[in-house]
Simulated scan of single mutants.
Amino acid sequence: MTRLLTLIAAALPLLAATGPAASAASAPARPYVPAGVKAGYVVLDRQTGRITSQRDAHRRFRSASVVKIMIAIDYLESHPSVPRDDLALLGKMLRVSDDDAATSFWTRGGRGRIVERTVRRLRLTDTAPPPADKPGFWGYTSISAADIALTYRYLLDRASPRVRDLVLGHLRNAGQCGSDGFDQFFGIPRAVPRPWAVKQGWSGYGSTPPARCRPTAAPSGPASGSVPDAPEQAATPPAGQGVPAPAAPARSGSASVVAAGPVPDLGHPVLHTTGLVGPGERWIMVLLTAHPSGTTWSRSTAQTTTLAKQVYLSGTS
C-alpha cells in the first residue's frame, strides 16, 4: 500500500506534462469543456494506481466547500476524543455542507493554520490558505484537482481507520438537500451510477435557492436537467482567532506550504464535484470548474453534470 501511494504521489506532479496526446491515448474520447469554462480534473484508478483521465490537474481553483474535507481531517487528527456535539457538527458539515459548522471548526482550529498543517501532512503541492486579509473565508482556500485526489488517497491509505471511516462514512451518505435548503446533487450524483461518496463545492451563485430542495429518489444513473444548489462562501466568522490545534510532527520530505496568493477566479462562480465512484469505489474522481461571470446556476450545473459524465466515461471505460 505504501508503494502504491508513492507511485500515485509521483504520478500526479507529472500530469501537467503529459498533455492532450497522452490523455487521448488512454481515454475513449476527450471530455468537452464548454467555451469560457475552466476545468481541472483527475480520474485515478485505485486498482492499478494509474491516472486514467486528466486535464489541468494542477490549476488552482478556490475551494468553496471542498476544503471541508481537510477541515474534518485536521480536526479529527488533532482530537483523539471527540465530544458528541462536535461529532454532530462534523456530520452536518460533511453530509449537508453546513457552513456554520465549518466556520466553527475553522475558527477553533486556527483558520489558515488548518490548511498549512494539511499541506505538510498530506504532502500537497498546490493548496494554499486564504489571503491574509481574508482569514475567515475558508472557501477562499486554493486547491487543485491533483491535490484533492491525493486527499482522498490519504484518507483511503494513510489516515487512521477512525478518521477514514468517519469522513468517508458521511460522504457515502451525503444528503441531497443542504442544510440551507439547496439541492447538492449535481455533477457526480447526477452523472455517475451509484455507488459513490461525494463532497461538493460551489460559490458565487447568491444566497437564495431558486427552488426549495425536495428530495427525490437516489439517482441510479445519468439524469437530465439541472439541479439548484447553495453558495459555498464562508459567512463572517465569530470574533476571535480560536485556539490553534497542535501541528502534526514534521516529516522528512514533507511538502512546503505554498504562500497564499490572489483568490483564484474571484468574480467567477465555481462549481466542484469530487469523490469515490464505481463498484468498490475503484476510482477517485475530482472535477473542479470555474464559469464565466454572470453564468446562471442552472446553466453551470447542467454543464458541470454533462462534463462529469464525460470525465467519468473517459476515465473508467
Rank of each mutant, 00 (worst) to 15 (best):
A308M: 07
S23C: 09
T6D: 13
G36K: 13
A17V: 09
F185C: 02
R84C: 01
P83V: 12
G242A: 04
F61V: 10
F105L: 05
T103M: 02
G110M: 01
Q47G: 09
S207A: 10
R95G: 04
D147Q: 09
A9V: 00
T48D: 06
P209N: 12
L155E: 01
I51L: 07
A146D: 09
W283K: 00
P231L: 02
Q233S: 10
W138N: 01
L155M: 06
F186Y: 15
A35M: 11
A132I: 01
P209S: 12
Q176R: 12
T107L: 07
V258K: 14
A21S: 12
P264T: 04
L168Y: 04
A211Y: 05
G169L: 06
Q47A: 15
L150R: 14
F105N: 05
A250K: 07
W138V: 01
S256R: 15
A235L: 11
A245R: 00
A245V: 02
V43E: 03
A239T: 09
Q241L: 07
L7R: 13
G19Y: 11
G206E: 06
K134F: 03
A64K: 03
D99L: 10
L287Y: 05
H291Q: 13
L271P: 04
G280A: 02
L276T: 02
R113N: 11
P28I: 11
I114Q: 03
L168K: 00
Q54G: 08
I143N: 06
P228D: 07
